[in-house]
Amino acid sequence: MDTFVLVLLVLGGCALLSWPLGRCMRWAMDPGDDSGHRRRALEGWFARSAGASGRSQGWKRYALDLLTFNALLFVLSFACLALQQHLPLNPDGKGALEGSLIFNTAASFTTNTNLQHYSGEVSLSYLSQLGLMWLQFVSAGTGLAALAAIARGLAGRRDMGVFLVDLQRATFLVLLPAAALVATLFALGGVPMTLSGAAQATTLEGVQQLIARGPVAAFVAIKQLGTNGGGYFGPNSTHPFENPGFWTHLLSLVSILVLPMASVWMAGRIVGRMRHAAVLFAVMLVFLLAKVGTAVAFEAEPTRAFAELPAVEQVDGNLEGKELRFGAAAGSGPLWAVLTTCTSNGSVGAMHDSLNPMTGLMPMLGMWLNATFGGVGVGMINMWIYVILAVFVAGMMVGRTPEYLNRRIGTREMQLAILTVLAHGLLVLVGTALFAATTWGQGTLNNPGPHGFSEILYEFSSASANNGSGFEGLGDNTVPWNVATGLVMLLNRYLPILLPLAIAGSMAAKRPSVTSAGTLSVQDATFGVMLAATILILGALTFFPAAALGPIAEHLLHHP
């Protein structure tokens, strides 16, 4: 299939699907007082399950409940991984994992990152895989719950909801039904779904071969829908059991994008500003199209890796590291690479290390900006931070007091917004500098020069953006890598949730102002352009020097 048609099918299809889905998600996450009898009964059950914390919460209580629940997730997943050799559902006798790898994996799946420094089929028991799958539901639910709470705060509601109730709404009413549907489609498409141990096969040469399998369809469905990205198998979605062919490939691409897109509409409905949501959606879509277009264009050039091989004729772009089962030759790989990094998903449909340098820059750009739809729930939260900064800058430019959704933006909100943006940049750049300058990073590289630098930069970008994809070519299962990326994942999962929660709480406590002719409109194209410029300038100021040392330098080396 032609790349253009594939892009149109996936992006257009997701955009169309996201509208009704956003309405459903609003119904699920913020039902209002006029719900029917059955829904009220369900809400009563959710509130009872939430126990003592079933009463309405301000931002502080909400944030503390969110942190407590996630700390508990971390401990449980840590225990499950550390004790897997003693626990049931281990038909292939998987042994104990090394301590720092357990830390990294527990942090990774608790934070919705799914950075994997191991191969699931080699290292993990079925119970560990199922435990990680559970985390893929509740970590995505955490993001969606946080978005609902922040939207309520920005809408001026001091009662920001109840975290444990929101989490149940997100898990049982959004993620579980969607995952059941997609898992069934994956199973019909040939993805295994079994608790039997590895299959034994006799090859044509008479050799016995063990073929890993398991509850893969269920795992892959929530992996994509929850913008988790962690593969059941090491090769992720390039493995024929995770992604057998073109139709499962298409289903995966749609599953990656559809909930982050719908999150924008859900948030717009909760704050009651659908035209504003449409502007944000349009800005995100333009960025996404620009990144996909750039990646596909640069990938049309043959790879330099085969340039010296006279027998290799490259007529269809860079085919190194691509799976031709998925069709679209070189175009399918960059499309997946951009979608999976823009949405904080991190599943892999082509080898990112093999992308041409400037193509490889696009996934990094997706993770640096982290708001081109972004992760389920959290992508929209990130976009709101950019919106607050854009409104403030626009207010300063025209000499008016900055206001957003009829609430004045003050010093405190700006300090918290700046802290949120700085945290991401600091964690990526300081980590990269440290590992590029020491043997912690240098000793684990597979490539010298700018490409090696890109491998380090990508790994920290992926950890900090809670993406989880790997550039690979990096021996990353070492104690320094496991500890550093584990800490980065934990810090930059919760800082961009806690700080915006505090902003929303602070805005909700303010007296609403009256809209006048002097109020900056946030629902027209002018604001969209202002927002896009703010994102670009902030992104460039923070990350351009690092990009220049990595992918841009590598590109210029090949094109003197």
């Binding site: 502080k60 942190l67 971390f74 401990v75 301590g99 357990i102 800490l487 810090l491």
Partner: peptide, 30 residues
């Protein structure tokens, strides 16, 4: 013992995030 140290490292990170939340809440109250 090795794994326990890593578990403590994770819990210490969560403790720092708890502390940050309380500091932010105090800043708001002031």
């Amino acid at each position: 013992v090795n794994a326990l140290l890593y578990l403590l490292l994770g819990l210490a990170t969560f403790a720092a995030l708890f502390a940050l939340t309380l500091v932010l809440a105090r800043g708001e109250a002031e």
